[in-house]
Design a protein around this nucleic acid. Structure first.
Lengths: 120, 120
DNA sequence: ACAGAATATTCCTTGACAGGAATATTCCTT
DNA sequence: AAGGAATATTCCTGTCAAGGAATATTCTGT
C-alpha cells in the first residue's frame, strides 16, 4: 500500500473531474432525478447524460432506481465521505508541514555537500 | 451562481485527474521536495515531473521555492480546504436526502399523468 | 399487439493531453 | 570563464475520451 488509508479510490476522484459530470453531481445534491430531467436542466442531450450517468454509476458515485420507463439516479454517500477524508488527510497536516520547509532546505544543502565526496 | 459556494473551483480539481499528479500530491503530503527527488521516488523522468509540477503550480495546488539550482515544491492548503468543504456539502445533506426518494417517486408519477392531458 | 415515451448503446470524428527524446536555461563551483 | 548540476521547454506522436447523430432497447397504456 502507498499510505492511502482514507478509502479514497483515485478513480473516483478522476471520474468527478469531468465538467459535465461535476454539474450532474451538483445537481443531484439537491435530490434524485430522472435522466430526462438531468438532461433538461443541464441542457445536454439525453445520450450524453446517459453516458455520464453510466460512468458515474460504474464508479459508485450514483445508484439507479427503476420506476417504470424511467431511471432515477441518486448520489451515494460513500465516495463523498472518502473524498472528504482524503482532503482532510492534507488539511490536517498542512500547517505543521509549513514549518518543515526550513529544515528541509538545510537538509538538501547538506546532502549536496555529501554527494560531492561519497565515502568510497 | 450555480449554488456552489464552497469556494471550490472545479478546474483546480480537474488537475488531479492525472494519476501521476495524484501521486505527486500524495508524495508531497509528507513534506516539500525538490524536482529531482520527486522524479526519483516516483520513478518518472525529470522532464515529465517538471511538466506535472508546472500544471499543478499553475492551478494553485503547489508553490515553488527556489534554492540555488533547485526548486522545492510544496502543497498549498487552499485547494484541499476547498475540496474538503465541497465534499462536506454533500455528506452533510446526504442522509436527509435519502428520505426524499419516495416523495420524488410519487411526484414523478403525478407529473407523468398531468403531462398526459395538459390543460389546453 | 402496437404506438409512443424514456433511456441506453453504437459508431464515428475530433481535440486534448501525457510521454519520449532532445535541447535550452539557470545557477553554482572552482 | 568554464564545466557541470538541476530544472524547464520544445517538438513529436499516440492514445483516449467526450460529443454528435443515429439507432436499439425497454417499458407503458390502450
Amino acid at each position: 500500500m502507498a499510505g492511502n488509508d482514507t478509502g479514497m479510490d483515485m478513480n473516483t476522484l478522476s471520474v468527478l473531474t469531468e465538467p459535465n459530470r461535476i454539474r450532474i453531481v451538483e445537481l443531484l445534491r439537491d435530490g434524485p432525478l430522472t435522466v430526462g430531467e438531468i438532461a433538461d436542466r443541464l441542457e445536454m442531450r439525453q445520450p450524453q447524460a446517459s453516458k455520464h450517468l453510466k460512468v458515474l454509476s460504474e464508479h459508485g458515485v450514483l445508484t439507479v432506481q427503476a420506476d417504470a420507463n424511467r431511471r432515477i439516479y441518486k448520489l451515494r454517500p460513500e465516495p463523498f465521505q472518502a473524498l472528504e477524508s482524503w482532503a482532510q488527510s492534507f488539511t490536517r497536516l498542512m500547517s505543521e508541514r509549513y514549518d518543515k520547509l526550513d529544515a528541509y532546505l538545510r537538509e538538501v544543502q547538506n546532502k549536496a555537500k555529501k554527494e560531492d565526496n561519497p565515502t568510497t
